[in-house]
Design a protein around this nucleic acid. Structure first.
Length: 562
RNA sequence: UGCCCGAUGGUGUAAUUGGCAACACGUCUGAUUCUGGAUCAGAAGAGUCCAGGUUCGAACCCUGGUCGGGCAACCA
């Protein structure tokens, strides 16, 4: 991308960063952070944020920290930390040695809290949760001042130290910043800085029984890490004055991190909150956080998405402040675009229909040559066996076809990809009238690559040689929900829109023999069908393929229009 | 009846910061094709939420509305 194009296409955050650099704010540094709370798996929305934060520092020459926002020991687990790290690196980003935890700063945070008390800017409140909630006021009415607000500095200090020492029960007292109970911004009405939580923390163990709240911990953590641009989602916009207030209390020089908010990603036909995804997992709607239908990074990975496709997608969706719903078609386009260039083409028959080529000799196997990827000659060629009995997909045959059907039907000819032209001579049915087999003839002059092979026929089919085919299970996935915005109804639970047909397992699929050594996460294009990925739990005894996405299907559109 | 955001083709994002509304996805044509894929060529689709104002000129600035979102967890 040229300098000129840069300027044209830049989003509002890049514009801010460029301005800060040109004005030499914070010495012209760019330092961002990705700050997940380890209480769930990362999803495609986080991927956008990861790409944004790491992308910015790649572009402008800076650093990005990975920081776990682990200030609530009752909700957070080690399992999530591991999955988050794996997802970020899988996407292709490197936080180098900067793996940080908000809990690493507990001591510093505590010291700053004492400082605030000493300056008369924080106080210990003995009110109960209910009382604090009740006296906070409403958006239109100011709150009531706490009876404990004017305690002496000495008493506050003493009580806060005793809170830390574990002398009080959960919920008995909190430390509050003394700001303004009448502020029109609810977050400035003496926000809670510390609460008492006698809970075991994954990292600090039993060292603490008071834990800082997000608003107090986050900005100060940014400050400690010398973050310059603290990017978060829109719902934190009203927190910004508080973010700045806390910083102003402890900052000593000119350096200040700047909070910038952008609109979170929404995807059509799915849900995008950890809470809802957790529900799907816990209530068994899906297999787990990495179910291929989930919009989680691990789910997309298992489904067969590439890191590149997700990064390209993140680039394409843009960054702005207005609410948005991205068409899932854009995500699908991103994988197709990437896999089209990379995925080896193979033959796979999902719903086998046997064909006997009656004029082809018994006991003969030809090794036919076929290109691995017509988009990339360097991927080479391979051999596929051909014989008298083959399988084609059942929906590639119609006994009574409509006019635009270019596939096999009685008396009609069709090309077998990389093989011969065959003609349907006869149909074999069982007693119920189901088609069980097709009798065909082949034209030996039409072998692919042969000099007289140029005869044109309307259609080309994929196929596999019956005696050489290997068996596999193929899982077809569809959108998780039937509604574009399942979480968008006040009077309906999002799970009411769960798509019962979102998973279709096919157990009798026949694949070309070269696939027998495929290992988990190998990706292929099953010619004319779609892109498929070996499931992470696939074994050589039981091969399992997940359909990542179908190919664009013009015929499906034509036939749907009837 | 408070405060803070936002509003540009079906969807998303741009518009050299006041100068002919562009790009991508999607849709539709056609060409091509041993994948009804890919590729190539082309088309339709918004006059920028509304009403005023400033200006030679407004998507952009001002005023007033309308609509949408967020904020009242000892969550993040």
């Amino acid at each position: 991308m040229s300098e000129e194009e840069h300027k044209k296409g830049r989003n509002f955050i890049e514009a801010i960063v460029e301005k800060d650099i040109s004005e030499n704010n914070n010495d012209g540094r760019v330092h961002t952070r990705f700050p997940p709370e380890p209480n769930g798996y990362l999803h495609i929305g986080h991927a956008k944020s990861i790409c944004l934060n790491f992308g910015l520092t790649e572009k402008y020459g800076g650093k990005t920290n990975l920081r776990f926002d682990d200030t609530n020991p009752t909700k957070e687990e080690m399992e999530y930390i591991e999955s988050i790290k794996e997802d970020v690196s899988w996407l292709g980003f490197d936080w180098e040695d900067r793996e940080y935890y908000a809990s690493d700063y507990f001591e510093q945070l505590y010291q700053w809290a004492e400082l605030l008390i000493k300056e008369g800017k924080a106080y210990v409140d003995d009110q109960s949760v209910e009382e604090i909630a009740a006296t906070r006021g409403t958006p239109t009415r100011p709150g009531k001042i706490s009876p404990y607000r004017e305690r002496s500095i000495e008493e506050n200090l003493d009580l806060f130290r005793r809170m830390k020492a574990g002398e009080f029960e959960n919920g008995a007292r909190v430390l509050r910043a003394k700001i303004d109970m009448a502020s029109p911004n609810m977050h400035l009405r003496d926000p809670i800085m510390y609460r008492i939580l006698h809970a075991y923390h994954q990292r600090t163990k039993n060292e603490w029984c008071i834990y800082p709240m997000y608003d107090y911990a986050h900005g100060q953590s940014d400050y400690i890490e010398t973050i310059t641009h603290s990017i978060c989602t829109l719902e934190f916009e009203v927190h910004r004055p508080l973010y700045d207030w806390f910083l102003d209390q402890i900052a000593t020089g000119d350096y200040r991190p700047k909070q910038i908010e952008f609109a979170r990603l929404n995807l059509s036909y799915t849900v995008m909150s950890k809470r809802r995804l957790m529900e799907l997992v816990k209530e068994g709607y899906v297999d787990g956080w990495d179910d291929p239908r989930m919009p989680t990074i691990s789910g997309l990975r298992r489904r067969g998405f590439t890191p590149e496709s997700i990064r390209n997608f993140s680039e394409k969706v843009g960054v702005a402040k207005r609410d948005n719903v991205i068409d899932v078609a854009l995500l699908e386009h991103s994988v197709r675009e990437d896999l089209n260039k990379k995925a080896q083409r193979v033959m796979g028959v999902l719903d086998p229909l046997k064909i006997v080529i009656e004029n082809y000799p018994h006991d003969v196997t030809e090794e036919l040559e076929t290109i691995n990827n017509p988009e990339d000659e360097s991927m080479g060629y391979r051999k596929i066996p051909f014989s008298r009995e083959i399988y084609i997909d059942r929906n590639d045959f119609m006994e009574d076809p409509p006019r635009k059907f270019f596939r096999l039907s009685p008396g009609k000819e069709v090309r077998l990809k990389s093989a011969y032209i065959i003609k349907c001579e006869d149909i074999v049915k069982d007693h119920q009238g189901n088609i069980t087999e097709l009798k065909c003839s082949y034209d030996p002059e039409t072998k692919s690559g042969a000099s007289q092979s140029n005869r044109k026929v309307k259609g080309t089919l994929h196929w596999v040689s019956a005696p050489h085919a290997i068996n596999a299970e193929v899982r077809l996935y569809d959108r998780l929900f039937n509604d574009e915005d399942p979480a968008g109804y006040k009077d309906h639970d999002f799970k009411e829109f769960f798509n019962e047909k979102s998973l279709n397992i096919l157990k009798e699929c026949k694949l070309e023999p070269s696939l027998k050594d495929a290992i988990p996460e190998d990706r292929f294009q099953f010619q004319r069908i779609g892109y498929f990925c070996v499931d992470r739990y696939s074994t050589s005894e039981k091969l399992i393929f997940n359909r990542t996405v179908t190919l664009r299907d013009t015929w499906a559109k034509i036939s749907q229009k009837k």
